[in-house]
């Protein structure tokens, strides 16, 4: 056979192989699926993505393998732009944090969640107002009022990253109460909790999983949770309290609500069959007992949406972020 002919035959055989799965009814990945994390190693999104990957591998939920790739540059912009630019590629997934909304608004990097295809909301991450256990505060308003008395900027609030979820909650509290806090950004949730234990700051809005160890050791205490309802986990965490025993901030007179999306998206321009494949896959993950355990460990809000409902939720949440960030003055020059 002449080389040219051989190449043509090889190409034909290759095309045939590539087309094979399409002949079946349902779509399936034909190569390794890349799972992008728009954040660094060790954070909440990273843990969840790697956990999903390990569950998929352990229970053989997918024929092809899944690899996790961190693209944290520019507050996650790098990861989002990568997925935006992979239009039509069904072998890419991305897990989101609140930086899906905040990064384009705060930095002016051109992307929007509408450039991506929503697949599945996995859970919502809760935020709790924490203070050092040695402080006399009994309720959220005790603390807020005390800060008011001390004067503007005297209470220091530590959080993860800047102009992201923690700082947005801080800004929302300021807007509701008229207090002025000094927000200090740190690299990770663990460091934030330790700053509070060491009394270098007055409060944090750590996720449950970031502060639970210090709570159990009696170093920190929770004042309220920034959700519409109490967290449903009634197993005792400390000697006397469970996650359920933490009141909502609203019931305490601090009318601020915030939960963070832990959701999965795909690049734009993919077919409905391809989206459906991943929706089914992630549903299978969510049914696993290991997943339920993981949810309980992190005291997640287990709301899980997909399809139209998911899209509507994201759109609503985006509008809320725009309003909050505008009021706080976090918008980058030039972004609308």
């Amino acid at each position: 056979m002449k080389p040219k002919l051989m190449a043509a035959a090889a190409a034909f055989a290759g095309a045939l192989l590539a087309a094979w799965p399409l002949a079946g009814e349902a779509w399936e990945p034909t190569k390794t699926v890349e799972f992008i994390i728009p954040a660094g190693t060790g954070g909440g999104a990273d843990q969840m993505a790697r956990y999903i990957q390990s569950l998929v591998a352990k229970h053989h939920l997918m024929k092809q393998s899944m690899v996790v790739v961190n693209k944290a540059g520019g507050a996650g912009a790098e990861g989002f732009l990568d997925v935006k630019n992979a239009k039509g590629d069904p072998h890419k997934l991305i897990i989101t944090l609140s930086n899906l909304f905040t990064t384009p608004l705060a930095t002016g990097v051109p992307f929007n969640w509408r450039d991506l295809t929503p697949v599945q909301m996995m859970a919502l991450d809760e935020f709790v107002l924490w203070v050092n256990a040695s402080k006399p505060y009994k309720t959220a308003m005790d603390y807020i009022n005390d800060c008011k008395k001390l004067g503007p900027g005297k209470c220091k609030m530590a959080g993860t990253g800047s102009k992201q979820e923690d700082q947005i909650i801080t800004a929302a509290i300021e807007q509701k109460t008229g207090d002025k806090f000094t927000y200090i950004p740190f690299k990770g949730g663990g460091a934030v909790a330790v700053q509070l234990v060491g009394n270098h700051v007055e409060s944090t809005v750590n996720n449950p999983i970031e502060a639970v160890a210090q709570w159990r050791a009696g170093k920190l205490k929770p004042l309220c949770v920034f959700d519409t309802e109490r967290m449903p986990y009634k197993a005792k965490i400390t000697g006397t309290m469970s996650w359920y025993d933490i009141p909502t901030c609203k019931s305490q007179g601090l009318d601020v609500e915030y939960v963070m999306l832990r959701g999965i998206f795909m690049p734009g321009g993919v077919t409905p069959e391809q989206v459906q494949y991943y929706v089914d896959l992630l549903q299978k993950v969510r049914q696993l007992p290991e997943w339920k355990e993981f949810m309980a460990t992190g005291a997640f809000n287990q709301t899980a949406l997909n399809g139209k409902a998911y899209e509507e939720w994201v759109a609503k949440e985006e509008a809320r972020h725009v309003a909050l960030m505008k009021a706080a003055g976090f918008m980058a020059a030039g972004s609308k």
Partner: peptide, 18 residues
């Protein structure tokens, strides 16, 4: 303390949690 001193420790920490 749950504070990782290096990126590797951060990943180990994630492992402990899981």
């Amino acid at each position: 303390l749950g504070v990782p001193g290096s990126p590797t420790a951060a990943v180990l920490l994630g492992g402990l949690l899981i």
